[in-house]
């Protein structure tokens, strides 16, 4: 499978190709059979189709159950949540959301939301800027040391990041940058998340070289080739990277846990955790409501961009 195809290959197209395969490889090859065995085969196929759908539906139920349970629980009174297998609330209430939106300890929910949003959007900007530029150097410019740097970058992909968090924390702490967004964003603007660079290098490698060579003959420098030729062509890779940069930043927990210590700087996951710690077990309703609110943007993103996301995973091995 061509690597460049990942965001461009719409599911329908793939499905269409595979459907054609289906008819070609179906059990009923040319030549025909006697009517009796054909109907038996049809029955067998129908039984198999039913079994297939039952099984797939069962898996779907198991997969969706926790998420749907969370969503439905957020509309139930707290006392009805734990231990209830029923999905549909018997008493429907919006109190949980009112409570969750009320915020924690004098800081509004929207403050947390905006912090998460600022971090996520800035991450997207940082990743797109730094990864495209770095990837261009790796993919399109030849200079001494490139091969070595590229291998090192691949190496950082597999490196457990825990080995750097302690010194990083000490450095940012000494710089007085704890309680700012800088430690959380520095890595994005400095292309420290190698998979984005890698993804873009892979993409760029497969763009036809003739384009930049032609431009070069016309006297264009690297800056112009990058801006006028590469960037527009890299749209699919940029979109995929942006989606993942957004979602990963939105879900990030350890980073904000280490660096954001003041309630008005909390991102949503940290606020959510604080909320869980602060409320008695009996207040599951508000916890669920806040959990739903914290996941909502990710789920919306997923619904809108699911094709990009899943195809990105299928072809690039991106992890969710």
């Amino acid at each position: 499978m061509s690597q460049t195809s990942y965001p461009n290959l719409p599911a329908q197209a793939a499905g269409g190709v595979l459907l054609m395969e289906d008819t070609a490889t179906g059990p009923e090859g040319p030549g025909g059979r006697v009517a009796g065995s054909r109907s038996a085969a049809q029955r067998r196929r129908r039984v198999r189709a039913v079994a297939f759908h039952v099984l797939i539906l069962a898996i779907t139920v198991v997969i969706l159950y926790p998420a749907v349970w969370m969503l439905m629980s957020s509309f139930k009174p707290s006392s009805d949540i734990v231990g209830s297998i029923n999905l549909i609330p018997t008493t429907f209430t919006l109190d949980n959301f009112a409570k969750a939106l009320g915020g924690i300890g004098g800081v509004s929910f929207w403050t947390f939301f905006m912090n998460s949003m600022i971090l996520a959007v800035a991450s997207v900007v940082g990743v797109v800027l730094s990864a495209t530029v770095s990837a261009y150097a790796f993919a399109r410019i030849s200079f001494p040391g490139r091969g070595l740097f590229f291998s090192l970058m691949i190496g950082t992909l597999l490196l457990p990041f825990h080995v750097v968090i302690i010194p990083q924390y000490i450095i940012f702490n000494n710089l007085g940058l704890v309680n700012s967004f800088v430690p959380l964003l520095a890595g994005k603007f400095l292309a420290a998340e190698a998979f984005f660079v890698f993804l873009m290098v892979q993409f760029m490698r497969n763009l036809p070289r003739e384009l930049d060579e032609a431009a070069r003959i016309d006297g264009a420098g690297h800056v112009r080739i990058f801006r006028s030729i590469m960037l527009p062509l890299m749209r699919p890779a940029i979109i995929t990277s942006s989606i993942f940069a957004f979602i990963w930043s939105w879900n990030d927990f350890l980073g904000p846990l280490l660096y954001l210590k003041k309630p008005d700087l909390y991102s949503l996951p940290i606020a959510l955790r604080l909320y869980v710690d602060q409320t008695s077990v009996s207040d599951y309703g508000a916890q669920m409501a806040m959990a739903v609110l914290a996941l909502l943007p990710v789920l919306l993103f997923f619904i809108v961009f699911q094709r990009y996301i899943v195809d990105g995973v299928a072809t690039q091995g991106l992890k969710g």
Partner: peptide, 21 residues
């Protein structure tokens, strides 16, 4: 897409809370 969705949210704080509950 449906089966993939948990991979996207599975490591989130929200899901951990749901799991515990």
């Amino acid at each position: 897409s449906i089966f993939y969705a948990p991979s996207l949210i599975g490591a989130s704080v929200s899901i951990a809370i749901v799991w515990k509950a």
